[in-house]
């Protein structure tokens, strides 16, 4: 018996060690629960500051925005008090399902009308601009495209990088549909495809492909460029950015935003969290740490060379409509660009 016991001791020890957390498992029901579709590397520090600011425990779950929206829709009682999304589409889906509470007018008024839900169910916390990344060794400044149709020029054949499965690309195509109409959008996409654009999995790969000169132009979001500079140093980065401007889909501005879950028993704390994310110190964080555009007037980045958001012309489209991507995807499938 003794021998048996001692020979088995390591296994028994391991079993107890493994089972211990099972017994100790318990949730903290007093904490504010945030479902964050934005990554910890981007907003982890900020949400840490939020915890101090609120003076209460904050539990954050990280995941993909779309997956978390689906999860919130499947939960019997939503576990989260606050949903922090990478894009307006996921927020729009929750609004449509009636899962988001209306935010106080005071908070909404901080932010430009372009960057909030019509019914006040969500508000943007930071913004990103679509830009054209280019390789200055191949493209001189005067040759840069000044609107959507310039991209169809023969000189760009096989030289434009895009990310067909990426949400930002799909939002861009939705903007093309809104500004050019269905037929105009189909026509543009067909011609774009005929010009043999190069597909990449995501914006990071496009950015690096342009940097290496694999393609001359790339359709990406602005901050991938600033993060590369922060990571590798300006002297080691070849790729440059071009802001198209005007009422053109290439100048689309998309947002990350936040909404309070309807029926949350910590709605008051959740609203204070929203107010904090719109505060000057949080907005400064976006401008400096994530290289995004602050949505509050008067905040400028001390680290990155960002053009002012209010100075960037953007197309006049309704960001909530970016949640209805069905028609966009149908069109992309039809054209064969999905």
């Amino acid at each position: 018996m003794n021998r048996f016991f001692f020979r088995r001791l390591p296994s028994i020890g391991l079993a107890v060690a493994l089972l211990f957390p099972l017994l100790a498992a318990c949730g903290n029901s007093d904490a504010l629960v945030i479902y964050s579709g934005r990554q910890q590397a981007l907003v982890g520090d900020l949400l840490g500051k939020l915890e101090k600011e609120l003076g209460m425990d904050v539990e954050v779950r990280y995941g993909g925005s779309a997956e978390m929206a689906a999860q919130l829709l499947e939960e019997k009682e939503p576990e989260a008090d606050l949903f922090y999304s990478q894009d307006s589409g996921a927020l729009g889906a929750l609004t449509e399902a009636g899962k988001l509470a209306t935010l106080p007018r005071d908070d909404l008024d901080i932010v430009d009308k372009r960057f909030q839900a019509d019914d006040g169910s969500w508000v943007a916390t930071s913004a990103r601009a679509r830009v054209v990344a280019y390789d200055p060794k191949q493209v001189s400044e005067q040759d840069l495209p000044s609107d959507l149709d310039d991209l169809l020029d023969e000189k760009w054949r096989g030289k434009v990088g895009y990310a067909p499965s990426n949400g930002s690309w799909q939002a861009f195509v939705t903007a093309v549909r809104q500004l050019k109409g269905e037929d105009g959008a189909r026509d543009w996409l067909v011609k774009f495809k005929q010009n043999n654009p190069q597909a990449y999995e995501n914006n990071v790969l496009i950015r690096d492909a342009v940097d290496k000169g694999e393609v001359a132009l790339g359709l990406i979001n602005h901050y991938y460029y600033h993060r590369k500079i922060a990571e590798e140093g300006a002297e080691n980065v070849n790729v440059k950015l071009h802001y198209v401007g005007g009422n053109d889909p290439l100048a689309l501005i998309n947002v990350a935003g936040v909404g309070v879950i309807k029926g949350s028993d910590k709605a008051e704390a959740a609203q204070r969290a929203v107010r904090y994310l719109l505060s000057e110190s949080a907005q400064q964080y976006f401008a400096d740490e994530t290289a995004e555009y602050p949505v509050r007037e008067g905040v400028t980045s001390t680290k990155h060379d960002l053009p002012k958001l209010s100075g960037i012309e953007s197309p006049d489209i309704d960001l909530s409509s970016l949640s209805s991507l069905k028609e966009t995807l149908a069109l992309l499938q039809e054209v064969g660009l999905s």
């Binding site: 829709l73 589409g89 949640s323 991507l325 069905k326 966009t328």
Partner: peptide, 9 residues
Amino acid sequence: TSYRASFDR
């Protein structure tokens, strides 16, 4: 695509 684009389960 159905989850990510149309949020329709």
